[in-house]
């Protein structure tokens, strides 16, 4: 009975949204309402998730588990940002400075570390997988793409060389289209399985 109820809710909501893709005029108002309710639920779900994160770190501090100092920093930053946000509002200049002046340096530095990590990982790819068609194509494409991006390989406009160069620059698009079509097919099948309750995202059997 429970399974039928949850399946019916999923199917009903899904069918209305799908119908809205094809018949926008009659289903427009219902779709707006469904999206708004969904947005509210996602927001509440986000709050629950963030609450769980805070609760986890409070437990870490109380039980003085390994890394509790980091948890204390996280919790202090969380509470400071939360209280400052509600008192000053997100539009306040100080609050925006606070968020941006922490976010930008930390995120840019993390991206900078990624350069070293990527270089190491690409060399590991060759060491662990050996010279396969994938690894050869990967390395060759990476090197040529960087040379192209740096503008080191150039030809005169309107020549055969330019056409050949353009052909090589278009090559990565071919695999990308295949990957995108594959992902879309996968998404379509998964969506249909959810809607028809073949899969149960809520975990019920």
């Amino acid at each position: 009975m429970k399974k039928i109820l949850f399946g019916a809710i999923t199917l009903m909501v899904g069918l209305v949204v799908l119908a809205g893709f094809f018949f926008q005029d009659p289903f427009g108002p219902a779709l707006t309402l469904i999206y708004q309710w969904g947005l509210v639920l996602v927001a509440v779900g986000g709050l629950i998730g963030l609450g769980t994160l805070a609760a986890f770190h409070i437990r870490n501090i109380i039980q003085q588990k390994k890394g509790w100092i980091s948890s204390a920093v996280l919790l202090a930053a969380f509470l400071f940002s939360l209280i400052a946000g509600f008192v000053l509002t997100p539009q306040n200049a100080f609050y925006r400075d606070l968020i941006l002046n922490v976010q930008v340096p930390v995120e840019t530095s993390l991206l900078a570390i990624l350069a070293a990590t990527l270089l190491y990982a690409s060399l590991q790819l060759i060491r662990t997988r050996g010279w396969t068609p994938l690894s050869i194509a990967f390395m060759a494409s990476a090197v040529f793409s960087m040379l192209f991006n740096l503008g080191l390989i150039q030809t005169a406009s309107g020549t055969l060389g330019e056409q050949v160069l353009m052909f090589f620059r278009r090559l990565p698009l071919v695999g990308a289209r295949g990957v995108l079509i594959g992902m879309a097919l996968g998404g379509l099948v998964m969506g249909l399985r959810f809607l028809l309750s073949t899969d149960h995202p809520g975990g019920e059997r």
């Binding site: 690409s122 990967f138 060759a140 793409s145 090559l171 071919v174």
Partner: peptide, 19 residues
């Protein structure tokens, strides 16, 4: 596999340049 390697290599080059 070859085409996938070419695509991943190009993506890698873009991300690596940004990083």
């Amino acid at each position: 596999e070859g085409f996938l390697g070419i695509t991943l290599g190009a993506v890698f080059a873009g991300v690596f340049s940004t990083a």
